[in-house]
């Protein structure tokens, strides 16, 4: 079935089964290898992408659901101004340890920074509630996001 959507800023179409998981289509058909799979059940957040500016887990989204929508992965988020700030901030606060959760955390942070100018700590915690981290105990990640938000303020 023909499915059309916008992927990382470009209109694309594919002729594949609408039941396929979005994560598989993005990885295999579009070669977006930044996208990793963890649990495959929407619980860990490693496969987080943006759909119409909202952070969602691509392992439980069927391809048909993206018809007519805007999809963004880390490949294009990497090019945003926010990303540079986020990366620096994460480095500064030690938010990256093993790095397993980092791509998903970055996408979730980007979604938050688009939505809110000055998110509160509560909003930050909520924004990454779908992203599990086994290493940092979240503290350094939350600080990293606070740092990123402040740095963006400063410019």
């Amino acid at each position: 079935m023909k499915i059309e959507f916008t992927l990382n800023g470009k209109p694309v179409d594919v002729d594949l089964s609408p039941n396929l998981r979005l994560i598989d289509v993005l990885r295999e058909h579009f070669g977006l290898r930044s996208l990793k799979e963890g649990c495959g059940e929407g619980e860990c957040g490693v496969c987080t992408i943006l759909m119409d500016d909202r952070a969602v887990t691509s392992c439980i989204i069927p391809l048909g659901m993206v018809q007519g929508r805007k999809i963004e992965t880390l490949e294009s988020i990497r090019e945003t101004h926010n990303f540079k700030i986020i990366r620096k901030a994460f480095e500064k606060t030690g938010a990256v340890q093993c790095g397993f959760c980092t791509p998903g955390m970055v996408v979730a942070t980007e979604a938050l920074m688009r939505k809110r100018n000055k998110p509160t700590r509560k909003e930050i915690i909520e924004a990454i509630s779908g992203n599990l981290c086994r290493c940092t105990g979240y503290h350094m990640i939350i600080e990293g996001i606070e740092e990123a938000v402040q740095k963006r303020e400063g410019i």
Binding site: M51, R54, A55, S129, G130
Partner: peptide, 9 residues
């Protein structure tokens, strides 16, 4: 309910 990523769909 759930986490933001799930609530978003």
């Amino acid at each position: 309910m759930a986490a933001v990523t799930t609530r978003n769909v």
